[in-house]
Amino acid sequence: IVIYGDVPKKKENVVYLSNHQCTADWIIADMLAIRQKALGHVRYVLKDGLKWLPLYGWYFSQHGGVYVKRSAKFDEKAMKKKLSSQTVLGTPMYLVIFPEGTRYNPELKKMISDSQAFATKEGALSYFHIDL
């Protein structure tokens, strides 16, 4: 993995929005946070089913993770409450979101090409470029 780009001089809030293409995607977000000495400030938006994973489910909840149900209507009020409890502390936060909510499946190749086409159409920008 090669990461390049300018690292901000001071810690700042980051919204890390990415396609979810492999199981290790979260590691890349952590690698960027480490470069800014902010690993302990990473917060994830996670699918609701992950809260039942032993140890991890509890850990992410206790450390500012936000669980969302893909099949239910988005609960904006709950999301704002959880995130505001983090921002009140005044600590910079890396908020990691994988909006597709699922990893790349080689049998569904159209999913990634559709996602890339949408990002191109909407003019998605990235601060860092990451080559895998």
Rank of each mutant, 00 (worst) to 15 (best):
Y16C: 06
S126D: 07
L39Y: 07
L53V: 14
T87C: 02
E12L: 12
K37H: 12
I97M: 11
I34Y: 10
V15Y: 10
V45P: 08
L83P: 01
G5S: 02
D25S: 06
S113Q: 14
P106M: 02
L125H: 10
Q116L: 12
Q21H: 06
E107D: 10
L108Q: 15
L50K: 05
A119D: 09
Q86L: 15
K69R: 14
C22F: 06
L95A: 02
P92E: 09
S126A: 08
F98E: 00
Y59A: 11
W58T: 08
P54L: 04
E122K: 15
L53I: 15
Y16R: 01
Y94T: 09
L125C: 10
T91W: 05
Y67T: 04
V15R: 00
Q116F: 04
K82R: 13
L132Y: 15
N105Q: 05
K11N: 14
P8L: 00
C22T: 15
I28D: 15
L89H: 04
W52P: 07
E100K: 01
K82A: 14
M93S: 04
V96W: 01
S71F: 04
L17T: 11
I97C: 09
G90Y: 04
V42G: 02
C22N: 14
Q116C: 09
M93F: 00
F74L: 14
I97P: 02
L39W: 07
V42Y: 01
E12K: 15
L53M: 13
G65S: 04
P99I: 08
I3D: 08
E12S: 11
Q116Y: 05
G65F: 01
D30H: 14
A24P: 09
H20M: 09
V96H: 00
Y44M: 10
L50A: 08
R103C: 06
F74C: 07
P106N: 00
Q116A: 13
V45G: 04
G90D: 07
V68R: 05
P92W: 07
S115P: 07
F118Q: 12
G123D: 09
W52V: 12
G64D: 00
I34T: 06
R103F: 02
L17F: 12
A78T: 07
R103L: 00
A119V: 03
